[in-house]
Amino acid sequence: MTYRSVTALDEPEFALPLPEGRYAVQARVITYDGERNARATDYFAEPEVVLGSDRTLELDARRARPLRPLVVDEDRALEDGSLSVDLVRTRADGLGIGTDDLATLGDRDTAFGVIPSATTAEHGAFHLAADHQLRDPYLTGSWTAGGRTTPLPLLSPVQAPRSDSSLRLPAVSVGAGADSDYAGRDVTGKLVVVSTTRAVVSPLVATAEAHGAAAVLVTRPTPGTTVIQGAASAEVPVVAAPHEAGRVLLAALADQPVTVALDNRRDSRFTYTVPMDFAGAIPESPVLTTRKDDYATLVNDFHAGGADRPTT
């Protein structure tokens, strides 16, 4: 088994000369949007490829399957917190290689998945191991216009200040959120909606705060990946909505007054940390179904104020 690292960006194919033998192939396939934000990240592994002549391996992200656990008897809302993925291939003599990755999920709408393997580890072992955190949502949102309330899916910066609070704020669109966009707009005590493709929003938040805004909601003006970062020093709540949800909200704002509701939590009241392990190959259906009774319950009496956090 021989291991070599190859990085291919924006190349439809590449050739790698290798001697005859058995090989393990692992890769991470990233699909980008127009701003080079990751729209999807998919993990690929062929645990045992036997080479005796020319051979083509196809890394087709369209075949990717969501890597997601289910807690089938949990009726409370859950959101993605984080995901760690390890692809580990070990030879019969114990020598191994691996690929590992860790991603936060609550601050972006990037999709994560795995591409099923066509081969299986016949000599030695292969494991796809993942820890997927599901949690009580940090915040929930909705907006109301004309007597009708619409749910508002939200993303939250990882390092954003958090508090236990419920806000009901009139919304104002401020375009791209530059200082000049606030001319003639009274945003004091209101939630401003900023349309931008920028992921790091700290300059936009600082401008909104300088004009008296009570909260900032960021959304993309065009389809693509929504990522929100850089709000660690914010003094007001900062959230993001995916493009389609933001488009609908902005369309309503153009016609009538809109009130946005933000219900925040200092920390999740409960968390599921779900270990997933698939041996031999990446399966066609990488889904793990669990029930609440499958978890031990640990009570955290610090930081979260006694929040129940079911874990394994």
Rank of each mutant, 00 (worst) to 15 (best):
T7K: 13
L9K: 15
E11W: 05
F14P: 03
L16D: 03
P19K: 07
R22I: 10
A27C: 10
V29Y: 00
I30Y: 02
I30W: 02
E35F: 11
R36S: 11
N37T: 05
D42P: 04
F44V: 09
E46Y: 03
P47G: 09
V50Y: 01
V50A: 12
L51S: 05
S53D: 11
T56M: 00
E58G: 00
P66C: 07
P66F: 05
R68E: 11
P69L: 09
L70S: 08
R76A: 05
A77M: 11
G81E: 11
V88D: 05
A92C: 05
D93E: 05
D101E: 08
L102C: 05
D107W: 08
A111S: 11
I115D: 02
P116I: 02
T119R: 08
H123Q: 13
G124I: 11
G124S: 09
H127Y: 10
L128I: 07
H132K: 09
G146K: 12
G147V: 09
L154G: 01
L154P: 09
S156P: 02
R162S: 02
S163Q: 10
S165I: 01
S166K: 12
S166M: 07
R168M: 10
R168I: 03
R168C: 03
A171V: 15
V172R: 12
V174Y: 03
G175H: 10
G177R: 13
S180W: 10
R185S: 08
D186N: 15
T188K: 15
K190Y: 01
V193F: 01
R198K: 11
A199L: 07
A199K: 15
A199I: 06
L204V: 06
A208S: 15
E209A: 07
A210W: 04
A210V: 07
A215M: 14
V218Y: 02
R220E: 02
P223M: 05
T225A: 13
T226I: 09
G230N: 12
A231L: 12
A231M: 10
V236G: 00
V238Y: 00
V238P: 10
V239I: 06
V239T: 06
A241R: 06
P242H: 02
P242Y: 01
H243T: 03
H243L: 06
R247S: 10
A252C: 09
L253M: 14
L253T: 04
V258N: 04
D263W: 00
N264E: 14
R265D: 00
R266D: 00
D267N: 09
S268Q: 12
Y272G: 06
Y272H: 05
A279I: 10
G280K: 14
S285R: 15
P286M: 08
K292E: 13
D294N: 14
D294F: 04
Y295F: 15
L298V: 15
H303F: 08
A307C: 10
T311V: 14
T311M: 14
